[in-house]
């Protein structure tokens, strides 16, 4: 940048002109920032929730309730679990059954789970994972990071690993996969080489807190360059221990189904301290489990 000083002197830029240029530039910046940062998804979703509910409302009382609905960040704070979940800022109608046919994020929770697990007591992330304090879709669902997610959400059968945090035995049909994983752990004799809690061998790594491992805690080898997802890593590792790198682990020639079941069980082994009132004691029939 070269400024001809003599010219500058001749032009005599008036301070008013200068100030207006500065003012224009700043208002443009502010406008851009406003667009990018103030138009949040959760506010839009809550607006459409308001629209849909007012159309659904039949009695005056219901309409009155919807009119009182305020658009703001909503959160469930559970002191016992040390969690603050803001998921309901977008999934605002998660516990309203009449929303079951409305598309995401306003769909109500499928199944009967919320009856036994009221969201006021459990929140969302204790089962689903993700970053509860986040208010953007990417961050909350753990998709914001490029390489791998620090707070991945548990999808598909992997969500059963969360059941294992509180339920000691798993004989419900909804938790058959983690139950199978537990049985496979004994069947393959993983305990011979790996320590779990206080017992087990020392040839392999300790598995007591394996579920808390993040994508960067495991080796991905030099060949792999895709999305780094810890549950995917576990499945591939069990199917073929040397899938990512040369591993010392024994190859059990597991099929995908068994590998997945075992991976689900592994992911349930987290050091999270669950308050005793949340823990469900053994009440299932053992003989039923072995089937």
């Amino acid at each position: 940048m070269k400024i001809n000083l003599n010219n500058l002197k001749k032009v005599k830029i008036e301070s008013v002109f200068l100030l207006s240029v500065v003012f224009l530039v700043f208002s443009l910046i502010y406008f851009l920032v406003f667009i990018f940062d103030f138009q949040t998804d959760w506010a839009n979703y809550q607006e459409s929730y308001k629209d849909i509910s007012s159309r659904m409302a039949k009695t005056d009382q219901e309409k009155e309730l919807i009119n009182q609905f305020e658009v703001n960040i909503k959160q469930i704070h559970i002191k016992e679990l040390n969690k603050t979940d803001r998921c309901i800022s977008c999934h605002v109608s998660i516990d309203e059954e009449k929303f079951k046919n409305i598309k995401q994020p306003l769909t109500s929770h499928p199944g009967e789970y919320l009856k036994n697990h009221p969201i006021e007591k459990f929140g969302c992330t204790i089962c689903h994972g993700g970053l509860g304090m986040a208010t953007t879709t990417e961050s909350a669902h753990g998709a914001a990071e490029e390489e791998g997610s620090l707070y991945p959400m548990l999808g598909g059968v992997f969500i059963q690993s969360s059941c294992g945090k509180c339920h000691a035995e798993n004989s419900y049909k909804e938790t058959s996969v983690i139950g199978k994983g537990k049985r496979l752990f004994d069947l393959y004799g993983c305990n011979v080489c790996h320590k779990l809690y206080k017992s087990g061998g020392t040839a392999g790594p300790d598995l007591t807190k394996i579920g808390a491992k993040k994508y960067y805690d495991v080796s991905w080898g030099s060949e792999y360059h895709g999305d780094k997802n810890i549950s995917e890593w576990l499945v591939n590792h069990f199917e073929n221990p040397s899938y990512y790198y040369e591993s010392k682990m024994m190859d059990f020639k597991m099929n995908n189904e068994n590998a997945t079941a075992l991976a689900v069980y592994m992911l349930s082994l987290v050091p999270e301290e669950i308050p005793t009132e949340y823990v469900v004691k053994k009440k299932e029939n053992i003989s039923e489990v072995i089937k």
Binding site: R86, M133, A134
Partner: peptide, 9 residues
Amino acid sequence: LDIVYTVPY
């Protein structure tokens, strides 16, 4: 986290 996700701007 609160600053990033709940405080305006």
